[in-house]
């Protein structure tokens, strides 16, 4: 199984590599379009700022490469946001794979932003969530979110409902961190790998 994790401007991808190793996968880390195109599975992780990382994706041409991929593809956290149409973070147009906008949480009474910690996922749809019970706990760290829409494959409530996961054809994405979500996260990663 040739699993490629895309290396680009975003930080802290080491934990994704280690999580894949824990489920028996030896991933390849690459920013080379030829290597990415030949992968069986592609993972697009990332923690960082949207407009800066979009700029880096464009500079390297990876923005167009990603949109053309036909194999199973998984965006994580910032990866999910960059796969949407537009992000309020740095007011930037993103890859447009999902027809949704990314917005900033507006703090409510005694509800803090960023959304940090363990929260539940609901309305689970699609292959990533095979065998995952409704209201399972996953780990989040984010200040921006994708609105719910027709491509939403799971939702979470924080201040307002948002897309915990998105899915369209071969493209899948999660806002939470499966690599840090205990055994639930490992099951979701395994589901992706077995697509």
């Amino acid at each position: 199984m040739n699993v490629v994790v895309i290396r680009y401007g975003a930080g802290n991808i080491q934990s994704v590599l280690f999580a894949l190793q824990r489920i028996g996968i030896t991933p390849t880390l690459s920013s080379d379009p030829a290597v990415i195109a030949k992968a069986d599975k592609v993972i697009f992780p990332g923690v960082g700022e949207a407009s800066g990382t979009m700029k880096e994706l464009k500079a390297s041409g990876l923005n167009n490469v990603i949109k053309e991929l036909k194999q199973p593809f998984l965006g994580i956290c910032l990866g999910l946001q960059l796969m949407c149409k537009h992000s309020e973070e740095g007011n930037v147009d993103c890859l447009g794979i999902f027809d949704l906008n990314v917005k900033k949480f507006i703090p409510a009474d005694n509800v803090k932003v960023p959304h940090v910690g363990w929260n539940t996922i609901q309305n689970l749809k699609g292959p990533l969530f095979n065998g995952i019970p409704e209201n399972s706990f996953v780990y989040y760290v984010h200040s921006f979110y994708a609105e719910p829409g027709k491509e939403t494959a799971a939702t979470t409530n924080y201040i307002n409902p948002f897309s915990a996961s998105l899915s369209k054809g071969n493209f899948h994405a999660v806002q939470f961190h499966p690599e840090k979500s205990g055994t639930v996260g490992e099951s979701i990663l395994k589901n992706f790998i077995s697509l």
Partner: peptide
Amino acid sequence: IAQAINIP
């Protein structure tokens, strides 16, 4: 630790 632990 990072290799072994599946929580933050």
